[in-house]
Design a binder for these strands. Structure first.
Lengths: 247, 247
DNA sequence: CGAAAATGGTGCAAATGTGTGGAATTAGTT
DNA sequence: AACTAATTCCACACATTTGCACCATTTTCG
């Protein structure tokens, strides 16, 4: 196990201390003076575990935590100097995170790191390498990176607004079936009731425009909803070919 | 509808509250104090829908979710107490899942449960537990994919209007018996009373036209209704009207 | 056979659903 | 507060579906 660990702490001493201890256990460790710096690097090359000091120049540890959590479930260990912070952390603590109050024993931290990683491995080990959500959605010539929220069409960036992004993501993840308007309104807009609204159509409209040059196409199921189809494997109507429908 | 719902939450109050509300709506509800317990039971006797608290003793809700997803497509609703969880959930591939943030309105949850189940039923016509096998209806040379709403006849697409689609689906699923007009009006048009209308005939007429080249045929039961038959194995008693021989 | 009831076919008009452009509103920033 | 982007709303055009009236045809039954 050659796990990669990122540490963000503005105190060089602590950073190096942790680095030393963790490397002694066989981990790969990279340190950052600020959380922002860490986040920047993490966005492009993820680590297996992150250690965040709460108080840092720039955005504090909580902010970085939230940012990271938007796209990743990497285990995070928070370091805090104040009890009040500890209280706060406890209030927001979620399953895979932990925290340490300064001063702390490096040995204990190392063992915590080990146990967290072990647990993580248990979870992801069964499903394969990745958690249940693919980082990358792909359909025809469209690629969506769910971690970076980057979307590309034919290799070129495809700028999507939040709603469009969600819609496209939802359609792709349900590529095998037709999706009703009601469902879209529920899942994306959160409308429980049957409101007479056409926001879904609006977004579909705009999305269609943006992906008009793509092989992916949003087809309309009259009186029901929509479905994502691939132009390339779409049977043109007046063909004699006896395309057996399977699946 | 006597659907079975499993709930895992370590908080007795919430569990019982939900139980009460859901049972009031006619659901069958079984509660579990942990997700592990729920999973254990579910493995042997599946439910139609599952409600999972995220934070529980033992494995947390996410873990259970993943475990269940390895073998089942049952709809799952997650309950979360924290925004950070909500963020995480939104990042997940939420194909058939939903989530609620505590505190939540039981009424809303119930309506969510209903809409999820209804949707599930729309797609598969069965309990959501099974994979997509039952989503395909087949009769003679006609194939209906209930997930994609695609209909084909002899391998070629058969464009149907919503009413025609419903009618044909209903006839196919009741292929073994004759269906009365009143029943059709009730099930498809929602007419409770005996209205003097011939909409059913209209739709049958249009459907007949579209499937005229098919082996499937809608035969009229005089004075009663209709029934779907297969031309190829048409050898039952009621066929003298079709012969060339008279007198 | 012939009349009444039931069913089928045709055409049309009303109802419903969808696509489009742009205006109005809202949300997010500075 | 002002600016911008995003979203929603709106009005209209257009397409499809649906229900119905009207008449033809078939079936039942006396």
């Amino acid at each position: 196990m050659n796990k990669l660990i990122y540490i963000a702490d503005d105190d060089d001493n602590i950073r190096n201390l942790l680095k030393t201890f963790l490397e002694r256990e066989g981990f790969h460790v990279t340190g950052f003076p600020t959380g922002d710096k860490l986040f920047e690097v993490f966005s492009n090359s993820p680590a297996d575990l992150i250690i965040l000091d709460v108080m840092m120049p720039g955005h504090d540890g909580f902010f970085i935590l939230k940012e990271i959590r938007k796209t990743s479930n990497v285990p995070i260990i928070m370091l805090t100097a104040k009890d009040s912070d500890a209280d706060y952390i406890q209030g927001l603590d979620m399953g895979s995170d932990d925290y340490f109050t300064k001063p702390f024993s490096p040995v204990k931290l190392v063992s915590k790191v080990k146990s967290v990683l072990k647990r993580q491995e248990e979870i992801t080990g069964k499903t394969g390498d990745k958690p249940d959500n693919d980082a990358v959605y792909e359909f025809a010539d469209i690629i969506i990176n769910r971690k970076t929220k980057e979307t590309t069409m034919k290799g070129k960036p495809l700028p999507l607004t939040p709603n469009e992004y969600q819609l496209l993501t939802y359609l792709i993840s349900n590529r095998d079936r037709a999706v009703s308007r009601a469902e879209l309104l529920d899942k994306i807009w959160g409308y429980e009731t049957q409101v007479e609204t056409r926001v879904a159509d609006d977004t579909v409209k705009r999305l269609r425009k943006k992906i008009s040059k793509s092989d992916a196409k949003i087809s309309t199921i009259w009186g029901y909803g929509f479905r994502l189809i691939n132009r390339t494997d779409e049977d043109t109507d007046d063909e004699e070919d006896d395309g057996d429908i399977q699946d």
